[in-house]
């Protein structure tokens, strides 16, 4: 039962990623694209955690933590660049 529900949730997450990718492609403004990219980071963290549960190993937490930090830093860097024209002043 656990494997079945893990696969079901993985399918739901992949559908969510596809919807985010659609918003990333059509997004009328650049802020929409940054928001879609940030959401894709969060969804991929969930997908990596699911993969770790599927393989019964706790090995992927460091990867998830790294992706969380990279997603936050890159979103803030995009925002700062659009807001100030520079990232580190």
């Amino acid at each position: 039962m656990l494997n079945f529900s893990i696969i079901m949730v993985a399918i739901m997450l992949c559908a969510a990623l596809a919807l985010n990718l659609w918003r990333l492609l059509i997004g009328p403004h650049i802020v929409d694209r940054i928001l879609a990219l940030d959401t894709m980071y969060i969804n991929s963290i969930a997908l990596i955690l699911l993969y770790g549960m599927y393989n019964r190993t706790p090995l992927y937490f460091e990867a998830a933590l790294l992706i969380a930090m990279l997603g936050f830093v890159s979103s803030v860097a995009f925002g700062k660049y659009l807001l100030r024209g520079d990232i580190i002043e």
Partner: peptide, 22 residues
């Protein structure tokens, strides 16, 4: 059962968030 319910709840919320984004 507990793990499956938590997983399905989380996956549902992620999907709803992406539908809302779109």
């Amino acid at each position: 059962l507990t793990i499956s319910i938590l997983l399905l709840l989380g996956g549902l919320f992620v999907l709803v968030g992406s539908i809302g984004l779109l």
